[in-house]
């Protein structure tokens, strides 16, 4: 009997130490039936891409509060692409100024969530992202 779950990597790239948001999201996703690989604080883009590769996740959720998203996110997307994981959906949560949003969307980021987003909204968006375009196994 096939038994499929959505696997998500939740990671905090960069140097800020605020992981509350990432933990709240990880728990909410678990409660919605996702399998969440949680890697903790201060991950380099290389560490995140390596974990995404070994864990074969469908979604990478990044929490960035340091303001360094315009360097970290493109680098992670580039690494994912290089290792053949362009079908992985990248979601970004945290403090993202409005001016940066179109640039991230253009890069292929599949969702951007600012402060005050409800967990229900995030979960719904994650579910739609993988069911709309099923990543081929």
């Amino acid at each position: 009997m096939p038994d499929t779950k959505i696997r998500v990597l939740v990671a905090k790239p960069g140097l800020d130490g605020h992981d509350r948001g990432a933990k709240v999201i990880a728990r909410a996703l678990r409660d919605a039936g996702f399998e969440v690989i949680y890697t903790g604080l201060r991950q380099t883009p290389e560490m995140i891409a390596e974990a995404a590769l070994q864990e074969d996740v469908q979604i990478v959720g990044l929490s960035v509060l340091s303001g360094a998203h315009m360097t970290l996110v493109p680098r992670i997307m580039e690494l994912l692409k290089k290792q053949g994981q362009e079908s992985v959906k990248v979601m970004v949560g945290g403090i993202i100024p409005d001016v940066d949003r179109p640039k991230l969307v253009e890069l292929g980021v599949a969702g951007i969530f600012g402060p005050g987003t409800s967990t229900t909204e995030v979960i719904g968006h994650f579910e739609r992202a993988v069911t709309a375009a099923p990543a081929e196994g």
């Binding site: 779950k5 728990r27 039936g33 399998e35 969440v36 890697t39 903790g40």
Partner: peptide
């Protein structure tokens, strides 16, 4: 472990294995 209530899981073992990346 998988949560018996929701079927979801948080897999956190990698947190302690960061020395092994790269």
């Amino acid at each position: 472990p998988t949560s018996p209530f929701t079927g979801g899981a948080i897999l956190g073992d990698r947190i302690r294995m960061r020395d092994l990346s790269g």
